[in-house]
Design a protein around this nucleic acid. Structure first.
Lengths: 200, 200
DNA sequence: CCGATACGCAACGGTTGCGTTTCATAACTT
DNA sequence: AAGTTATGAAACGCAACCGTTGCGTATCGG
């Protein structure tokens, strides 16, 4: 009756971490290539990962659970914020979105956010909590701070401002795919929303 | 050798306009219910329309052509613009988007615009020409006019402003489905973008 | 070595949708 | 009446994918 070092390991061959990682990677690859959750097939994932279907079904009972776990590995890398000005911090946050639009791997985050909210509401809920809310919180914090210290209007509707900032970037990335995004895009969006488009 | 009243009608039973209309309606219904183009099946359309598959295949050679034609029946109802002020015209245009988000039938326009751009690029291209560009042109015209007559900044980036205005509405409708959209949403978006969020 | 578990692989029966064909019937021209 | 085309229904063979099972092998603990 000896205890293993940390947890009592069950008898038999342990599950391959390499296989598990390969499955999640393959899932993200396929999603990143523009494949929707509906079209994503377990067989395609197994094939891409070089793994038997059995190995997948042993770990996840259905496709949605697998996708949720795969997306969970994409922890939102909310950047360090200088905190010097609202403008600079907003630019920093939008730059993250712009950069991700170029990386195949990270792009699927936004693809899924926009595409699958209707068809897989429960998946979307989990995904939102994991990948979207942290970023929204970061933007919200910057705006609230600016509202408190006078950089922004006192009557600002923070939620609406968040949607305006991110919406501009999302529309741009969605409908200009292929063409690289202008390097100063984030600055231009932030400055426009800060100063307004009306003449002074 | 007599000519028919208008066009020389070919011999035999004419194609049923009722069937054709039913097919297009069924297609729009299914799309409006949140079904993606990939999941949309000819069999489901035929069943919903009360029509044989033969009748569909005789008119369209593939699913994408059918979807394009179905979407084409949703002519962009660009509203009359009062033309009194840039602000009022922009509110009018955004109100169209907001209202459509409530109608099941019209909602699919936006759903497809956001979801299917990657997977069906050629469908998206046609769709964009039919349904998106007319609206973009209307917004662009308002902004250009405002830029010319001094209501808007002389150095305004019109394209970016369009994306900001529509992006805010799109994000709002996409992520708040279910909850009805506030009635003054369009006004609040327009005023925010016009005046900016920075303190004066 | 032995028992237990995981592995990749192949095959299974079942479902869905494809695009086509056949059929009896309906609608229209001459 | 005769000829022609369209219609809805049903069935076809084909392919993809489902979730499961069996196989021989690999990897662990005891």
């Amino acid at each position: 009756m000896s205890m293993s070092t940390t947890t009592a390991r069950p008898a038999g061959r342990p599950r391959s971490e390499k296989a598990e990682k390969a499955i999640l990677e393959a899932t993200l690859d396929l999603l990143g290539e523009g494949m929707g959750v509906s079209e994503l097939s377990i067989e395609a994932i197994a094939s891409r990962a070089g793994v038997g279907k059995t190995t997948i079904y042993r770990r996840w009972s259905n496709k949605e659970d697998l996708v949720v776990d795969a997306l969970a590995t994409l922890k939102a890398p909310v950047p360090e914020l200088a905190g010097e000005s609202v403008r600079d911090d907003l630019v920093t946050l939008l730059e993250v979105m712009r950069t991700e639009a170029g990386h195949v791997r990270r792009r699927c985050v936004m693809n899924i956010a926009m595409s699958e909210s209707d068809r897989h509401p429960q998946l979307f809920a989990k995904f939102r909590k994991i990948a979207i809310e942290p970023r929204r919180n970061a933007v919200r914090a910057v705006l609230e701070r600016g509202k408190a210290n006078g950089e922004l209007r006192a009557d600002l509707d923070v939620e609406l401002a968040m949607q305006t900032l991110t919406g501009a970037m999302i529309v741009h990335t969605k409908w200009h795919q292929g063409e690289p995004l202008a390097e100063d895009l984030s600055e231009r969006i932030v400055d426009m929303v800060l100063e307004g488009i009306a003449a002074r």
